[in-house]
Every structure is written in C-alpha cells, then in structure tokens.
Nucleic acid binder design. Structure first.
Lengths: 160, 160
DNA sequence: CCTTGACATGTTATATCATAACGTATTTTA
DNA sequence: TAAAATACGTTATGATATAACATGTCAAGG
C-alpha cells in the first residue's frame, strides 16, 4: 500500500512526536496503564510519519528498531493505542494514524483525498451529535464510531 | 466470519427482495446501466439475507447458483452495486449489505451491535450535513462517506 | 524479599479479505 | 456486421488479520 500524507497544509511537525508521546504518558498514567517500549515506539512511528500507515508498514519500522518481526507485534500495539484513543484506525485505508486531538475529541472524522491520498483528522462533535441523535431514534447506544469521507482536498481541487 | 442479522426489530421481509430488485432495475435503466444476471443474483442474495455478508459468503451463494467460483466474480458485482448505491460496504465488518433506502438516502449510517452483531442502516441526512460542514471548514469536498457506529442495540441493552 | 497472578512480548502457523492480469464472450453502436 | 466497449470467468498472487502457544516481565500481597 502506498502511504498517505496527513493534513492538507504542510507544516512543521517535528514537535508532534514529542508532545504526543508526553501527552500519551500522562493519559495512560491516569488510567494506570503502561506505555511500554513497543507501544511507545509504535506511537512514535505514527506521530513521526504523520500519516496513515498500514500495520505491516508499522511492523517493518518496529522490526528495524529491534522489536519483533511478526504481525501480532504491530497489531497488538496498534490495538492498544486505538483502544486508548491515542491512535485511530482508518478503515477505508486499512491503516492507522496517531490521534491528532487526543483530549479534545473522541469523535474523529477522517477526510481522505482521492487525488493525493492526503488524510486529515478533524474534530467533529456536531457530526457525532447528529449520529447519536439518529441512533437514539432506534434505541441504539453508540460506543465507538468510524466516520470517514472520501473526496477532494483544496489542493487537488485547485489542480483539477 | 459469522454473518450478521440486519435490523433490530425482526420483520417479514419476503417482499424486500422483489421490491428491491424492481427498484434497482428502474434506477439502472435511467442510468443506462445493466443489471446483468450475476449482478441481479448478487443483489438478490444481499436482499434475501437481509444482513451484511462477506464477499466470500456472497461468492459461495453465487457459485451455488451456477455463476463463477472465483473471488473477482463476487467482488466485481459487489463493487458495481456499491458504486450505484444499491449496496453498501460495511468496513467495520469487511462485509456488504443491500441498501435499504436506495432513493431516500445516500448518506447511510450503519449501527452495529456488538452484542448480537445486528446491523441497522438508518438514513441520516443531518449527519451527512454536519460532516459536509466540518469538511467545508478545511476546504474539503465530500464525495462518498462511511459512517459506522459500534454499540448496543435495544435488545442487547435490555438483556444486559 | 520473593512468590504469584496478571499482563506483555515474541514466535509459528493459518485464516481471511482483496486484486492483478489475462482470455473469452457478449452487448452496443457506428 | 465489424469494431469498440463492457462483462464474465479463470489462475495466480498479494495484503490484511488473528489464533494459539511459549517465554518473559512487572506489580502487589504474603
């Protein structure tokens, strides 16, 4: 799978990884959960790449960093991060991305550009609220959501 | 994969397949597209099962009905139906379901019960509208959406 | 401290989902 | 009716994901 860039506007995100890891430490501490080496490395990989990566892409990087070489190593770490809201699974891409808004927002919306494969995560409480409302009319309780949109980012629209 | 029932309230849907197929014929006629035998059978399978089926489950039924036995046969028919809005892909389940509201609604929301695997498709223009609004703030144009929620259906809530 | 239970990591093996590439047949249209 | 487009079927392979089990590490209670 071709990797996907993340965010429509390029920006310096050298600090993303640092702050992201620090934030993760805090969050997990309050939950008495551990950010073990593999988990930490996995999150760092996602933060540094700053785009959606397939599990096997992550695995490759983990292996290169001296961790295990078999799929479950990556899948387990990713699953943990997703459960804790520190990363998200982008189902349309069969890929994972670090959460860009771990505290603000647990109703992430992913915008996927079909032109350049860029991926943006945007907070969207209104979307979540509308979803909850729709669910309520049939008595359904929402626990987790996957909200993804495929379309065209501003850059690709301009180019077309 | 264990199959998933569809709709939280059981109901007689013997006519779903008939009306669904008729509706599909109409829709495709206006688009000058063909509901070929495999496509028709595929749609019928989804309508009759009335739940999400994996591509290989569909393939099995197609093969039993005398069509091809290889994955692309199923994937192609399903892809066509999804493109035409006659079926949807439920990514969380790696499965496909016939569209329950082909004319009303091209912003389907799927509610997936983690208790009983029931699947409900509910129209949700407000959700779509909220998504469009969120996208617009970053200049993104939405073309297709996948909106899925995992949670508990009324029955399973009652049971718990 | 040190044992014990819970959790975490790694492995092998396999299951599941999906598509590429190609040849043939059918349908449409010029 | 020939040419072009579309559809169907195949073989083969690729990509994604999980089950099951062995070993190691941590944290808490005795």
């Amino acid at each position: 799978m071709t990797p996907h860039t993340n965010a429509f506007d390029t920006h310096d995100h050298s600090h993303c990884a640092d702050t992201g890891l620090a934030r993760a430490e805090e969050i997990l501490a309050t939950r008495k959960l551990r950010l073990t080496p593999v988990r930490r490395q996995t999150l760092q990989i996602l933060l540094q790449e700053h785009r959606a990566l397939g599990a096997y892409d992550v695995l490759e990087r983990l292996a290169a960093a001296g961790f295990g070489k078999q799929p479950p190593v990556a899948y387990r770490a990713l699953e943990f991060l997703v459960e804790q809201g520190l990363a998200h699974r982008v189902r349309r891409l069969n890929a994972f991305a670090a959460c860009m808004h771990p505290e603000t927002d647990h109703a992430p919306v992913f915008l996927i550009c079909r032109g350049c494969n860029a991926l943006a995560e945007t907070p969207a409480q209104p979307v979540r609220a509308a979803l909850e409302a729709a669910a309520q009319t049939v008595g359904f309780t929402v626990e987790r959501t996957n909200i993804e949109a495929l379309g065209l980012c501003p850059n690709c629209k301009a180019a077309a």
